[in-house]
Amino acid sequence: MLQALMTWLDPLCGTLGIFRLFPSDSLLACGDTGWGDEIASGVFVTVSLALATLPLGLFAGFMLALAKQSKEKSLRLAADIYTTIFRGLPELLTLFLVYYGAQIGLQNLLSAMGSSTTIEINAFLAGMVALGLVFSAYSSEVLVSAFHAIPNGQYEAGAALGLRRSTTMRRIIIPQLVRIALPGLGNLWMILLKETALVSVIGLADILRQTGIAARVTREAFMFFGLACLIYLVLAMLSSIVIHYIERWAGRDEART
């Protein structure tokens, strides 16, 4: 039932899907003859990769931002090293390092511990980790500047009311932080969405990989890569609409001046 509903609502190859508008013998048809269904699944992979990376990157970024503001010097230094590395490496290289390196490293570690277990990091997980590392490095910077924008008086007021530090953080600081950091995080989301395209290089069947296969098989490279660009544009537009609504929602209690 749910499945039937999902199939019906699928915006690309569902009953009302865009690719259904093409005749069934065209290159973009959804079925055994066309590439519509392949590309639709690529869109699904791209979006799920970006959505899976987001919470990971946000959480790590928040932790890093806290570390960067700590009074403890060693914690600040450790966080800064992290940011320097993952903002300095090309995303493609980070991806290779995670995809090949983590696998080799973990395997060696396991066999050093005398275990014969094989561990497998697939392209999706490698992409999620690599993009999450990069995303957290950038988002920590956005969050740090958002923290700076919140006056000290807010913490002091919390303390004066006798709130615990965690409560102050949860009820006073974070709601303001979200509002201030949203535009910056929205930008990072757009970048993340585009960076997922790199995962096609290590074999994940995302938009770019699927259109690339179609381009090679059909020899219609311009059309299919053009289509890939269009799909990314549509995803970017949808994202900016959603971000706009989230921003409005987050700013709903703001005093009107």
Binding site: K194, T196, L198, A221, F225, A228, C229, Y232, L233
Partner: peptide, 14 residues
């Protein structure tokens, strides 16, 4: 709005 890698493929192979 589009990934650089997609633009590169569009220009190179396209």
């Amino acid at each position: 709005g589009t990934p650089l890698i997609a633009q590169l493929f569009l220009i190179y192979y396209g």
